[in-house]
Design a protein around this nucleic acid. Sequence first.
RNA 1: GGCCCCAUCGUCUAGUGGCCUAGGACACCACCCUCUCAAGGUGGCGGCACGGGUUCGAAUCCCGUUGGGGCUGCCA
Length: 469
Amino acid sequence: MDAPRFRIAPSPTGFFHVGGARTALYNWALAKRLGGTFVLRIEDTDAERNRSEWNQGIIDALAWIGIHADDPTFEGPYFQSQFADEHVAAAHRLHEAGKAYYCDLTGEQVQERAKAEGVQGYGGWSRNLGLGPGPGRVLRFRVPEGQTVVRDAVRGEVVFDNATIEDFVLLRGNGSPMFLLANVVDDITMRITDVIRAEEHLPNTPKQQMLWEALGVEPPRWGHVPLLVNEQRKKISKRRDKVALESYRDEGYLADAMTNYLMTLGWSPGDVEIVPWASVEADFRLGDVSHSPAFFDLKKLAAFNGEYIRRLSVDEFVVACEPWLAQWRDTHPDAVWDQAVFVAIAPHVQLRAVTLSEAPGVVDFLFLPEPVLDEASLSKALSTEGAADVVAQSIDAFGACEWTTEAIKSAFEAVAERNGLKLGKAQAPVRVAVTGRTVGPPLFESLELLGRDRTIERLRALPAGVQVR
RNA sequence: GGCCCCAUCGUCUAGUGGCCUAGGACACCACCCUCUCAAGGUGGCGGCACGGGUUCGAAUCCCGUUGGGGCUGCCA
């Protein structure tokens, strides 16, 4: 048997859809394991939108999830409009063979007539008129009698009664090819053997299969994978849902976490769901894919991402954070960056991060001349019993102790005890004064990194701006 | 409306006639740990849509009902 050829056929929408990403991953895993080919064909009959510069985003997005254009398994990208002549030629062959016919009814006329005769859609009125081509005339496919059986690798056999399928349009009145035809002709031209795509295409599959057969080619193996839906259980859409793969990349989701999560939507890797791509590639089977729609759950994605972040080495984590740190530096010219300080605090950030983009926001106080004080948490932390005393005494204690995490901690423990407070309670006002927030990385490590002078300076600066009881 | 698909905890899933008193993960709750927040640990809550069959036995097979979704363009 020849090596299988898979394909994905995204349309150029300006971003790459997460649903498309999952389908791409399914195709990629199969192509890899089977030693086949993964073909990327960007589909729009509009030549303008088929320009490569419009679609670099798709290439980049695929590369992000591990599908690299320079991999030998990868072929393309192709652009549908490159093959426009072939689409038209195929349509003409169908006409010559009597498998398609011209129709001079406009869309409006079809609607009127259907209404008048009480039928659904196009009634095949021009079927036997023997019309030739002409301006405004569309070429329609002559749907044969009988049944069309789609053999689907995910769902088994799906039977369609051809009587329920109307004679669909192949060529528009202006002679340009319709998507359905272009799609089939391209698949044939590119010798595609396996069409794995989302379930929304299942109802159109019998039409395509009939086209393959009419064109004298054996149809491909089909596989329709379940839809990705939102909390309303509707197909995720650009309008209402965050569907751009790029937006997740930009927010600091790890590609490995994203690919792993996407694969689990409709498929289960086995006992553990956090698995390396190599095992996905080895284990993924279309026959194991679920039949029902899957909810794209941000919370679970976040959990996957946190897990993947924690599995990074500290060095890897630091490198991974860099784009967001660089962006933060650019927007905070008054900050004095110290890479060694970030590296030192990084393990604590890593343990807490859900996405990489959060990193700057939790370490900013170490590099800014002054912490960004949140008024609400400030007044809350300082209004507690003994807060003012704790702050005042800390200034003295910190001025006298050795400047290591351990020494700072013991010095502060003494202050807390003197005020009859638990450490957790006592640290709150100091934390807010120094970091600007009530939550963040461990306090004493942070203070050590900040330095004695700046710590004391921030504690002293406190009472001036706020009401301290 | 017509055609098609689907139906296990809130969510993603395991389950392919007896291993099911239905397993795991996320979320949620509680407790432990703890300098905040996390992370980690332990435990808990929670499901086979319904009704008929078939069978010694059904989450698993069949039929129906209900519910959800998709498709139904001279869009892609």
